[in-house]
């Protein structure tokens, strides 16, 4: 009897989930916001989205992606608004007719984190170029996002400014991870590697182990400005939205 009941319950359960999924498409009004991962991880949305929803009656569905991917899905019409940080990519996005109304919304600064032991002696330096030069000459492990994110692009600009070609830097100290900020911080903590991170992700990051901020407040670290581009209503495929 128990077996028979379980059988029926299992089948009904499966059928019911199928049915629920079929009707799960919410009837509420919503917009889709493609945002960089670090903004979501900073906890900002938890604070502002309920307020926005109360005022406007519109639900915001946040899809957290890297800047490159967010721009790509925005160009395909899959997001109504973007929150990204790569000025060059944004300008191209708007110039290509993919979006309108680009605005500066906020800024985030970057910090260089590394092991407390600081084998390359960068603590207390005031200059990013000097710090990167010391890391390179000490062959101290450095973890790079390597994912063409806004943070990665900034990091590569800083290496160029320091006159170091990381692609040719031998010795295996420069590791390109191809990962998001959180995964890169996890790896850095495990490798005792230096890495460049935005302050918001760092502030919310729990697995720091021996990592700590070694360099901050460098003028070159505050150049990232976060922007907001709204989808153009002129894109035919977006008109139905």
């Amino acid at each position: 009897m128990l077996v028979r009941f379980c059988r029926r319950a299992f089948f009904v359960g499966s059928a019911a989930t199928l049915l629920c999924a079929g009707t799960a498409r919410a009837q509420e009004r919503f917009i889709t916001l493609a945002s960089t991962t670090s903004t979501e991880q900073s906890g900002l949305f938890d604070h502002i989205l309920p307020i926005f929803q109360k005022q406007s009656g519109i639900t915001v569905r946040v899809v957290a992606l890297g800047t490159g991917q967010a721009l790509a899905i925005g160009a395909r019409g899959d997001a109504d608004a973007l929150l990204v940080h790569d000025r060059l990519g944004e300008d191209k996005f708007v110039a290509d007719g993919n979006g309108i109304d680009r605005r500066d919304v906020m800024f985030n600064d970057f910090v260089l984190v590394g092991p407390k032991a600081d084998p390359a002696h960068v603590r207390g330096l005031k200059n990013a170029s000097e710090a990167l030069t010391r890391i390179a000459s000490a062959h101290a492990a450095f973890a790079s996002r390597g994912d063409d994110s806004g943070t990665n692009r900034l990091e590569l600009r800083l290496w160029r400014a320091a006159g170091i070609d990381v692609q040719k830097a031998g010795g295996g100290w420069y590791r390109e991870l191809g990962s998001g900020m959180g995964a890169t911080l996890n790896t850095s903590a495990a490798l005792n590697a230096y890495t460049l991170t935005d302050r918001a992700t760092w502030a919310a990051f729990a697995n720091r182990q021996a990592l700590e901020i070694l360099l901050e407040g460098e003028p070159g670290f505050v150049q990232s400005v976060w922007q907001h581009s709204r989808q153009s209503a002129e894109i035919p495929k977006c008109e139905s939205r």
Binding site: A21, A24, T32, D78, K237, S240
Partner: peptide, 19 residues
């Protein structure tokens, strides 16, 4: 995707798309 052949169904970023 909105630019894809089934974009009109507007299923992207819904549980049905995952299914």
């Amino acid at each position: 995707s909105q630019s894809g052949p089934l974009g009109g169904l507007r299923l992207l970023f819904t549980p049905l798309a995952m299914i």
